[in-house]
Write a protein that binds this DNA or RNA. Structure first.
Lengths: 146, 146
DNA sequence: CTCGCAAACAGGAACGGTTATTGATCCGGC
DNA sequence: GCCGGATCAATAACCGTTCCTGTTTGCGAG
């Protein structure tokens, strides 16, 4: 197992000057293995299963390095800790405000939007993120049954 | 001064069952007076100038009521407290990751996107927010001078 | 008018996610 | 094998936000 990471990730580390340490590798693996969009604590718990000595602070530090070099993406929500995602392409994440689950909305193209954004502002854009909240079908059904 | 609020706001309060108290009115006025996109604490400080007895907790509670009934919008950022905005139409906010200022990007239409989102997910969408981060022209210039 | 009740508030303590600190440890280059 | 900088573990501190308690306010019924 532990299929190797793409050359792009390796390359991003090389160019950034950061080293791809075993802990950072473990954080990447945890992100790949954890369905949904894990929080820092979720990642911490997963990593801890294999290496109980890692500290939560290390996970935060690793995540912030990974975000800085463009390997992971962080999204911020109402009433929920920051969640991390290996998908760094512009995409839509939706969070159910009842059960808290986060998933992706497929089929909506955002590339054009990002291009238009860059055209419309004099800022040097470094990050764009779209978050959507709503009620998932399961919670909605539960509600109407109650 | 203190030009009156629109009938729509009044109506939203009426329908929600919440009361439009003087503190909530003061929070709305602070939002209208404060340029940029103030944080809860910014609002608190502004409100406090006129009524020093208001509590920070009251401002938070007022803001959450205002958000719930659709009068203000909250956006969540990297390394910055939540910021509030009277503009509840879908729009783009950009934050400079150097100086922290938040402003709007005009001229990008988001209505269509929101419609497409609703078509592409079985969720009952309650909120969409787009955040953009980058370096503003001023900070960019400052950098190249250094 | 005033009494009673529910909603809202002030003040402050508590909470939770995140960041900073400090000393130990690892790792690459010599 | 040894040195030095980067990274790490452990834990304390921080800061934005929420929660709690007693008090005040506003409003409807009598």
């Amino acid at each position: 197992m532990a299929r190797e990471f793409g050359e792009d990730i390796r390359e991003k580390f090389r160019r950034s000057g950061y080293t791809l340490t075993s802990q950072r590798r473990a954080v990447l693996e945890a992100l790949r293995e954890t369905p949904g969009h894990p929080s820092a604590e979720d990642v911490y718990l997963t990593v801890k299963k294999k290496n109980p000595r890692v500290a939560l602070g290390t996970v935060y530090q690793a995540l912030s390095v990974l975000e800085e070099i463009g390997v992971v993406e962080a999204k911020h929500w109402n009433e929920s800790p920051t969640r991390y995602d290996l998908n760094v392409e512009p995409h839509l994440d939706i969070r159910c405000s009842k059960c808290g689950n986060v998933s992706e909305i497929p089929g909506v193209e955002l590339k054009d939007l990002e291009i238009r954004i860059r055209e419309s502002t004099p800022y040097e854009v470094t990050r764009t993120a779209m978050v959507v909240e709503g009620i998932c079908p399961a919670c909605s059904a539960e509600n109407s049954r109650a």
